[in-house]
Simulated scan of single mutants.
Amino acid sequence: MKAVIDEITEGKAVLLVGAEEQEYVIDASLLPKEAKERDWLQVKLTNDDVVSISLDQEETGKVKSRVEDKLAKLKAKGGSKFRK
């Protein structure tokens, strides 16, 4: 099942899991060493507990590319119509 790391603070990680983005708070030490906020993961749940976590580099790359494309399009438009 896919999940994204929403935030990491004070030794805890908040994961948003599945299409419903169900929130799970886990010990950050359970994350892969190279994982950071906004990275995508593959997680396995058993009895509503996260039992397996691996970094999904392919999904992380796809999402990052999609966001960068959207930002480039916004910049190409010349920014906001509302000026200060």
Results as ranks from 00 to 15, higher is better:
Met1Cys: 05
Met1Gln: 08
Met1His: 09
Lys2Asp: 15
Lys2His: 14
Ala3Asp: 06
Val4Lys: 13
Val4Gly: 08
Ile5Val: 10
Ile5Gly: 02
Glu7Gly: 12
Ile8Glu: 00
Ile8Leu: 00
Thr9Trp: 02
Thr9Glu: 13
Gly11Arg: 11
Gly11Pro: 13
Lys12Arg: 08
Lys12Tyr: 06
Lys12Asp: 07
Lys12Val: 06
Leu15Cys: 03
Leu15Val: 04
Leu16Val: 01
Leu16Thr: 00
Leu16Trp: 00
Val17Ser: 07
Gly18Leu: 07
Ala19Lys: 12
Ala19Leu: 11
Ala19Pro: 08
Ala19Val: 12
Glu21Asn: 09
Gln22Asp: 05
Glu23Gly: 07
Glu23Asn: 11
Tyr24Gln: 00
Tyr24Thr: 00
Tyr24Leu: 01
Val25Trp: 04
Asp27Val: 06
Asp27Met: 01
Ala28Asp: 13
Ala28Cys: 11
Ala28Thr: 08
Ser29Pro: 05
Ser29Thr: 10
Ser29Met: 08
Ser29Gln: 07
Leu31Cys: 07
Leu31Trp: 10
Leu31Met: 06
Pro32Ala: 01
Pro32His: 02
Pro32Glu: 03
Glu34Val: 09
Ala35Cys: 00
Ala35Ser: 02
Lys36Phe: 10
Glu37Arg: 15
Arg38Tyr: 02
Trp40Thr: 02
Val43Ser: 03
Val43Leu: 03
Asn47Leu: 09
Asn47Trp: 10
Asp48Lys: 05
Asp49Thr: 09
Val50Ile: 15
Val50His: 08
Ser52Asp: 09
Ser52Trp: 02
Ser52Met: 03
Ser52Val: 03
Ile53Gly: 06
Leu55Tyr: 03
Leu55Glu: 02
Leu55Thr: 02
Leu55Lys: 04
Asp56Glu: 01
Asp56Cys: 01
Glu58Asp: 15
Glu58Ala: 15
Glu59Asp: 01
Glu59Ile: 04
Glu59Lys: 10
Thr60His: 15
Thr60Ile: 15
Gly61Gln: 14
Lys62Arg: 14
Lys62Ala: 11
Lys62Cys: 06
Lys62Trp: 08
Val63Phe: 15
Lys64Tyr: 15
Val67Asp: 11
Val67Ser: 06
Val67Trp: 14
Glu68Thr: 04
Glu68Cys: 01
Glu68Ser: 04
Asp69Thr: 12
Lys70Arg: 13
Lys70Pro: 03
Leu71Phe: 05
Leu71Cys: 06
Ala72Gln: 04
Lys73His: 10
Lys73Val: 08
Lys73Trp: 13
Leu74Ala: 08
Leu74Asn: 04
Leu74Phe: 13
Leu74Tyr: 12
Leu74Gln: 05
Lys75Tyr: 11
Lys75Glu: 14
Ala76Glu: 06
Lys77Ala: 15
Lys77Pro: 05
Lys77Cys: 09
Gly78Cys: 05
Lys81Glu: 11
Lys81Trp: 08
Lys81Cys: 07
Phe82Cys: 14
Arg83Thr: 12
